[in-house]
Every structure is written in C-alpha cells, then in structure tokens.
C-alpha cells in the first residue's frame, strides 16, 4: 500500500527532494498496479459463452455440457437481458407446466419438451452484475450474499466478461504467494 514519504528538508537538499519525489511516484505506481491486480477485469473470463432468448433449453443444456460450465448469460447483440443456470434448465419442463396451470390455460397441461421451451421462459431477467473496475472482494461478497456461482461483468450495458467462483479462487491463490 502507498506510504506517504515526506521529503526531508536539508540545507542544499534539493537532490534529496527530487529523489524522495521519485520514490513517492514509484510507490504510488506500484500501489496502483497492485490495486489493478484486485480488480475483476484482471481475472474475468473473456469472451463469454452466451445464448439468445429464443434459443431452446435443449440447446442451452448442450452448451453447458460441452463447455463444462454452470450458467449462460442471455444476450441480445451484446446487451445482457438475463441469465440461466444449470438448475433453471434442469427444472424447465416442470416450471413451464406449472405456469400454464396458474394462468388458467384451458388445455390440459402437456409437458413441453426441452427443444420447445425458449430459455427466456426460464431465465432470470434481473441479473446481478459488476463493473470491470469492481474488486474481487466485492465479487466474493456478492456471490456469498446472493448464493450465486458467477457474475456477468457489464460495461455501459454491454457484457464484457464473466467472473466465476473458480476465477476468484484462482486469483486468490496466485495473489497470496
């Protein structure tokens, strides 16, 4: 962390003052670089694997399986509109059937197949996100408080990365050397 070094005042001490000023600047640069090390943008995963709202639950499941990930941000162009997790996708046919019953649909509820259900019907639209300049600590606290495993990173409304629990764990193990 940056220390405030007071230039010593001495008779004919101009050279000392210059040296001290240079040292202060170097310490400040190191502190800034270190602060950078704790930012989300340093450790987030890019590019992000995403899905569109009208893509099917079946397609989403296949992507999660292939890439060994647990969640998919839902985007329109690069604008984040929602997120689906492996649990949302696993519970999908049941969730769709229940909402048909609730809405009082006249037809007997038939369990829709995963190929027929668009992810927008099971996604969470109010996504918890962070900015690239937020810290790892803020991310870890958010994940613990909200019991989530990943946070999409957004800049000016556009998805720029994703930070997972593993990313944070990896960051801490490297930083705590």
């Amino acid at each position: 962390m940056a220390e405030r070094i007071k230039p010593r005042t001495r008779v004919g001490g101009a050279q000392d003052r210059v040296r001290e000023a240079r040292k202060t600047k170097a310490v400040a640069r190191t502190a800034a670089r270190e602060a950078q090390e704790f930012r989300v943008e340093r450790w987030m995963t890019m590019p992000v694997i995403t899905i569109r709202p009208r893509d099917s639950v079946a397609h989403a499941r296949a992507i999660l399986e292939e890439h060994r990930i647990n969640q998919l941000p839902v985007v329109v162009n690069r604008r984040l509109v929602g997120i689906v997790t492996d649990r949302d996708l696993r519970d999908a046919p049941r969730a769709v059937e229940i909402s048909a019953k609730v809405s009082g649909a006249d037809i007997a509820p038939v369990e829709a197949t995963p190929e027929q259900i668009p992810v927008e019907e099971v996604m969470t639209a109010k996504v918890l996100t962070l900015a690239p300049s937020d810290t790892l600590q803020q991310a870890a606290e958010l994940m613990r408080r909200e019991r989530i495993g990943a946070v999409p990173i957004v800049e000016r409304g556009r998805l720029v990365g994703i930070l997972t629990r593993s990313d944070i764990l990896g960051a801490f193990t490297k930083l705590c050397r």
């Binding site: 600590q137 870890a140 613990r144 495993g149 629990r165 944070i168 764990l169």
Partner: peptide, 10 residues
C-alpha cells in the same frame, strides 16, 4: 467445495 474455500478466504 469451492464455495467453502471462498467463504473461508472472505
């Protein structure tokens, strides 16, 4: 789990 360890670190 990964969560346990993150919690401990926090």
């Amino acid at each position: 789990s990964v969560s346990d360890m993150l919690r401990a670190l926090l």
